[in-house]
Computed example of a mutant assay.
Amino acid sequence: LSNHDVVRHASRLMLPPGTDTDAWLLSGGHAPAVDQDAGLRRARAATLLMLALPGSSYLYQGEELGLPEVADLPTAVLQDPIWEQTGHVRKGRDGCRVPLPWTTTGPSYGFGAGGAWLPQPDSFAHYAVQAQDGVEGSTLELYRSALKLRRKLLDGEELTWLEDTPPGVLAFARTDGWRCVANLSDAPMPLPAGEPLLASTPLPERGVLPPDTTVWLG
Score class of each variant (00 low, 15 high):
residue 155 D to T: 09
residue 150 R to Q: 09
residue 160 T to P: 08
residue 75 T to N: 11
residue 90 R to A: 10
residue 17 P to Q: 11
residue 51 L to K: 05
residue 118 L to F: 10
residue 184 L to D: 09
residue 196 P to V: 09
residue 202 P to G: 07
residue 59 L to T: 07
residue 83 W to M: 03
residue 113 A to T: 10
residue 18 G to K: 12
residue 50 M to K: 04
residue 25 L to N: 07
residue 151 R to I: 02
residue 36 Q to C: 03
residue 56 S to C: 04
residue 105 T to F: 05
residue 100 L to A: 04
residue 195 E to G: 05
residue 35 D to E: 02
residue 92 G to M: 12
residue 143 Y to H: 09
residue 59 L to W: 14
residue 217 L to D: 06
residue 120 Q to C: 04
residue 15 L to K: 10
residue 78 L to G: 10
residue 160 T to N: 14
residue 156 G to E: 09
residue 111 F to K: 00
residue 93 R to F: 03
residue 109 Y to M: 02
residue 14 M to K: 03
residue 138 S to K: 04
residue 135 V to W: 12
residue 77 V to H: 01
residue 50 M to N: 04
residue 5 D to E: 09
residue 118 L to N: 10
residue 32 P to K: 01
residue 205 E to P: 06
residue 182 A to W: 15
residue 28 G to V: 13
residue 69 E to M: 13
residue 139 T to E: 13
residue 92 G to P: 06
residue 121 P to F: 00
residue 114 G to A: 12
residue 12 R to V: 09
residue 90 R to H: 15
residue 167 P to D: 09
residue 69 E to H: 13
residue 129 V to H: 11
residue 159 L to C: 12
residue 133 D to A: 14
residue 173 A to D: 14
residue 91 K to E: 01
residue 41 R to L: 06
residue 31 A to S: 14
residue 50 M to Q: 14
residue 133 D to Q: 15
residue 10 A to I: 06
residue 183 N to D: 03
residue 201 T to W: 05
residue 26 L to W: 08
residue 132 Q to Y: 06
residue 110 G to N: 11
residue 94 D to N: 07
residue 107 P to W: 01
residue 195 E to M: 05
residue 189 M to V: 12
residue 130 Q to F: 09
residue 179 R to C: 12
residue 158 E to C: 02
residue 16 P to K: 07
residue 114 G to E: 07
residue 131 A to K: 10
residue 81 P to Y: 08
residue 141 E to S: 07
residue 56 S to R: 12
residue 88 H to S: 11
residue 24 W to F: 02
residue 78 L to D: 04
residue 84 E to I: 00
residue 62 G to M: 02
residue 23 A to F: 04
residue 26 L to G: 00
residue 20 D to M: 05
residue 43 A to K: 00
residue 86 T to D: 08
residue 164 D to M: 00
residue 156 G to T: 08
residue 128 A to W: 05
residue 115 G to D: 04
residue 109 Y to F: 15
residue 77 V to Q: 06
residue 132 Q to P: 08
residue 34 V to N: 14
residue 170 L to G: 01
residue 17 P to R: 13
residue 170 L to F: 15
residue 74 P to W: 05
residue 195 E to N: 04
residue 49 L to R: 14
residue 94 D to K: 10
residue 148 K to A: 13
residue 44 R to Y: 02
residue 97 R to C: 03
residue 72 D to G: 10
residue 36 Q to A: 07
residue 38 A to E: 15
residue 28 G to M: 09
residue 172 F to G: 00
residue 84 E to V: 05
residue 34 V to T: 12
residue 154 L to F: 15
residue 149 L to A: 08
residue 133 D to T: 09
residue 154 L to R: 15
residue 140 L to E: 03
residue 160 T to Q: 13
residue 64 E to R: 08
residue 181 V to D: 02
residue 48 L to K: 12
residue 109 Y to V: 00
residue 168 G to F: 06
residue 166 P to Y: 09
residue 168 G to D: 12
residue 200 S to M: 09
residue 188 P to Q: 09
residue 71 A to G: 01
residue 147 L to H: 03
residue 125 A to F: 07
residue 120 Q to W: 10
residue 89 V to C: 03
residue 61 Q to M: 01
residue 102 W to D: 08
residue 129 V to G: 02
residue 42 R to P: 12
residue 100 L to N: 04
residue 38 A to M: 09
residue 171 A to C: 13
residue 83 W to T: 01
residue 151 R to Q: 08
residue 14 M to C: 14
residue 194 G to C: 10
residue 56 S to Y: 08
residue 128 A to M: 03
residue 72 D to V: 05
residue 30 H to P: 00
residue 215 V to K: 10
residue 47 T to N: 01
